[in-house]
């Protein structure tokens, strides 16, 4: 247009925009991943063999939880 100076396209703004978009997406991804891992950790804690055995059996009877470690290496008296 006559009388108007030509302005350059805005390359300096592009990295800033790209950074903002990346940060937004990374925030979403990070929060999703954080929540997912928290749930996994909670489930792992709930279903860990010792959790219920210790509460239900071991604490009531005053003995150690009998199922804990069953089948794990070193849990039998033959040393396996």
């Amino acid at each position: 247009m006559p009388g108007r100076t030509l302005r350059k396209a805005a390359p300096p703004a592009a990295p800033a925009e790209a950074a903002a978009e990346c940060a937004l997406e990374l925030t979403r991804i990070g929060d999703r991943w954080d929540l997912r891992q928290r749930l996994l950790n909670l489930l792992a804690k709930l279903f860990r063999p010792g959790t219920w055995a210790a509460r239900g059996h071991g604490e009531r009877s005053g003995r150690g939880p009998w199922l804990c470690g069953f089948g794990r290496r070193g849990s039998t008296d033959i040393g396996r």
Binding site: L24, T27, G30
Partner: peptide, 16 residues
């Protein structure tokens, strides 16, 4: 910018 909204958590750190 990642931590500007709501601070840091392990998920955001891993994403970064």
């Amino acid at each position: 910018q990642l931590e500007a909204d709501g601070g840091l958590n392990w998920g955001r750190l891993l994403a970064l």
